[in-house]
Design a protein around this nucleic acid. Sequence first.
DNA 1: TATGGCCTGTAC
DNA 2: GTACAGGCCATA
Length: 278
Amino acid sequence: MPELPEVESVRLGLEKYRNQRLSKILIRDKSVLFEGQFSENKLNGKKLSSLKRRGKYLIFVFDHKYHLVAHLRMTGKFLPLTSTVIPKAVKDETSKKSLQCRAIFTFKEDVAFYDTRRFGTLTTVEDLELFFSKKKIAPDPIENQIQAQQHFFDKIQDRKQSIKAVLLDQSVVAGVGNIYADEALFLAKIHPKTMTKKIRNPEHLWEKIIDVFNLALRYGGSSIINYRDADGRSGTFQEKLNVYGRNGLACNICKRKIQMIYLAGRSTHFCKSCQGKN
DNA sequence: TATGGCCTGTAC
DNA sequence: GTACAGGCCATA
């Protein structure tokens, strides 16, 4: 499930298409386009000038001014159409499954936006700042650390929710999903149910969020279910996880059993002993 | 502020 | 067959 480190890994993998011309766009499944906004003609024939990312959003910049904004949600992937990660049935244009290649972007090679579930989105955007402010996406914690940190401290002041729920809120910190929320709270030794305003040392928690992002980035992300980067690789950070998906297993620090509860509608993993009572 | 729905594959 | 995975949005 792509969170910030996974999206960043995808971005890096797509760098090889930089300065290439987008000669064709084939939309197979129009339902991936959100807000009904997708102006193919704005991108067609334009050169990919750079690739950016904000939180979990991937941004293709064409001719320095036209933007294609993609969100992978759970299962979205950008892959060469030739990749073996895309099943044969999906490549077969006569098959119903071929719709899972929601779109195909032709650079020097065909790049597919392959998404088994239909949660991923693509849209063309002119004013990026306006787009992200409408969506209330916080500054990117890696690209814009100082700003993102201040934003985080400001936003958590008046929150009346548990810290776990708040970490999942993209308007507070961009790029944290269920895995890294649990992992960051473990590293910060904070119980996920802790009410946000009771956090005594937000600086320390912020540090741990950044730590876990950087660590995951070094390993090319986690592939709990089926995340793949732009070269079809899966990343190995899942082997380093302390709590996520480790329900009932021994804590790496104290050897007591990792617990799982439901919080903010999400499975939440923690060590009762390392992360206090509440 | 909490919830259900969107989707489909996988595990039981 | 059912439950579950979860990012985000709409709804109450």
